[in-house]
Amino acid sequence: MTDSTPPQPTRVPAPAPSPGHTAGVARGWAASVHVPARPGAGRRRCRPGDDRGSATAEYAVVILAAVAFAGVLVAVMRSGEVQQILTDLVRGALVP
């Protein structure tokens, strides 16, 4: 008599639960499905005093200011008056 039990598929272990995850640990196939402990638990909420992302916004503002300053500097350096001053400065430094 042959065994008529179908072969069992290979199971993939579930990832470790995230911090704050309070739902029970699932077993078997259900372990690969993430179910939040309560509805809306996986959504990010913006709370008063929550400053996540503020450093990124500050970097963006600083970069924009630096680009604006570089644009002004390029415009000033291209003017004939400033080029003449710089040329005279370099010639005075090279010629004794």
Rank of each mutant, 00 (worst) to 15 (best):
M1N: 15
T2H: 09
P6V: 01
P7D: 02
Q8R: 07
Q8D: 07
Q8K: 08
P9T: 05
T10G: 08
R11N: 09
R11Q: 15
V12H: 11
P13R: 01
P13S: 01
A14W: 02
A14C: 06
P15L: 03
P15E: 01
S18G: 11
S18I: 10
P19K: 02
H21E: 05
V25A: 07
A26T: 02
R27T: 05
R27Q: 10
G28W: 02
W29P: 02
A30I: 01
A30Y: 04
A31C: 00
A31N: 00
S32A: 15
S32G: 11
S32W: 12
V33K: 06
V33D: 07
V33F: 07
V33P: 01
H34P: 00
H34W: 09
A37H: 02
R38C: 09
G40F: 03
G40Y: 04
A41W: 07
A41I: 07
R43Y: 06
R44Q: 12
R47T: 15
R47P: 08
R47Y: 13
R47H: 15
G49P: 04
D50M: 11
D50K: 11
D51R: 13
D51V: 14
R52H: 14
R52V: 10
G53N: 06
G53W: 04
S54A: 15
S54T: 13
S54L: 14
S54F: 11
A55Y: 06
A55S: 13
T56W: 06
A57D: 09
E58T: 11
Y59W: 15
Y59C: 12
V61S: 14
I63Y: 09
I63Q: 13
L64F: 11
L64Q: 13
L64R: 15
A65N: 14
A65M: 15
A65W: 10
A65P: 07
V67W: 07
A68Y: 08
L73A: 15
L73V: 14
A75T: 08
V76W: 04
M77K: 07
M77V: 08
R78P: 00
G80H: 08
V82E: 02
Q83W: 02
Q83K: 06
Q83L: 01
Q84T: 06
Q84I: 06
I85R: 06
L89A: 11
V90Y: 01
V90G: 07
V90L: 08
R91Y: 08
G92D: 03
L94I: 08
L94Y: 07
